[in-house]
């Protein structure tokens, strides 16, 4: 079948070609997210911001939705952002990226701005992105004529407002809106939304969706570079351990990120032009080359699950087992075949 490039019909702007960096020693030394931020000690999301913009480079505009990465990061007169940065409303990451990309497209086409590929990245938290802003992100992923990346940093709560349960908080997690009590031990019974796969499956024209974990820094960087290079609207979802919200010693942020992958709770994959690729330890788990670690190893290291009984742990384990043993595409697409 003949391939038709629909972008050729419109004014699709070129993207920057950002080759992957092969190994940590090849990663650029330049920093575009530097001193000035005030996140908690051990905040994985702050590191993720640093990796994200290091990957994108200086010819980038970053839009940041309300949340910890806004409030704790951009105190007036002490911004850590070396690149142009603008706040957007809690549910507006999709719209911010769309508007910025649309403006660049129009201004460059009409000769009102010098033509050059400028990266547009909008980031959002799990609350702002996967709850309030989901429809705007979905809409952004439909605008295939614009080059933009939506980057969701997922600390599994509305962290900035004092750790409240969101649609991406894990089952049973203790939060200030879902405390375990004398009558109801489990206040939060929803299962975490399968966000990246939902967006990939629901937006077949979107050319790149990936999940990342900052424990694997080079990989995180290269996924950002791939998304920006392939162009069109793209989406990356990062699971970020949060010492304050998850209640653990800040020095274990990376360990917990890795455990989330090793227990199978957080599958690492990318969907490029409709092609699914598992990677890292998730690939081995999917191919059953390695055993998943028991989820209790991950859950019991965090204070937010301290109230869990054996029954709760079993329930959680059972759901994770289903993900890998029953799902149509293990860890990704939750249907069962006939």
């Amino acid at each position: 079948m003949q391939q038709i490039n629909i972008h050729a019909l419109s004014d699709y702007l070129e993207t920057q070609v950002l080759e992957p960096w092969k190994g940590i020693k090849k990663v650029a030394h330049d920093e575009y997210f530097t001193s000035g931020h005030r996140t908690c000690q051990g905040c994985e999301s702050a590191l993720v911001m640093r990796l994200m913009i290091k990957a994108a480079g200086p010819r980038t505009i970053v839009l940041g939705a309300t949340g910890c990465m806004y409030v704790a990061n951009t105190t007036y007169y002490s911004t850590p952002w070396v690149v142009p940065w603008m706040h957007t409303q809690l549910g507006s990451s999709g719209s911010a990226a769309t508007g910025t990309a649309a403006a660049l497209t129009a201004l460059m086409r009409k000769g009102k701005m010098e033509k050059e590929p400028i990266n547009v990245i909008a980031f959002c938290g799990d609350g702002g992105g996967a709850d309030m802003g989901l429809s705007a992100i979905s809409a952004a992923l439909q605008h295939t004529q614009y080059n933009l990346l939506i980057f969701l940093y997922d600390n599994e709560s509305y962290a900035n407002t004092d750790i409240q349960v969101s649609g991406l908080s894990p089952y049973g997690a203790n939060s200030t809106f879902s405390p375990p009590g004398k009558v109801h031990r489990i206040m939060h019974k929803r299962w975490k939304k399968n966000t990246a796969a939902m967006l990939a499956a629901g937006h077949p024209d979107c050319k790149y969706v990936a999940t990342v974990s900052a424990g694997n820094a080079v990989d995180t960087i290269n996924k950002v570079r791939r998304a920006l290079t392939i162009g069109g609207p793209t989406f990356i979802h990062s699971l970020d351990p949060c010492p304050k919200g998850w209640d653990y010693d800040p020095k274990y942020s990376h360990d917990l990120g890795e455990l989330a992958v090793e227990t199978g709770i957080w599958p690492l994959y990318e969907v490029e032009e409709g092609k699914l690729k598992m990677y890292g330890k998730s690939k081995h788990i999917a191919k059953r080359r390695v055993e998943r670690k028991p989820v209790s190893e991950y859950l019991l290291r965090q204070g937010r699950f301290a109230h869990f009984t054996k029954e709760d742990l079993d329930y959680f384990q059972g759901k994770i087992d289903e993900m890998w043993e029953k799902w149509l595409l293990p860890g990704v697409i939750p249907f069962t075949g006939e």
Binding site: T88, S92, T98, G99, T100, A102, A103, A106, K112, S135
Partner: peptide, 17 residues
Amino acid sequence: ESEHSQFEIVKHASAVG
């Protein structure tokens, strides 16, 4: 996909010039 987005999109476009 909503008025909230409608106005947010142009708000950001305006910031870019």
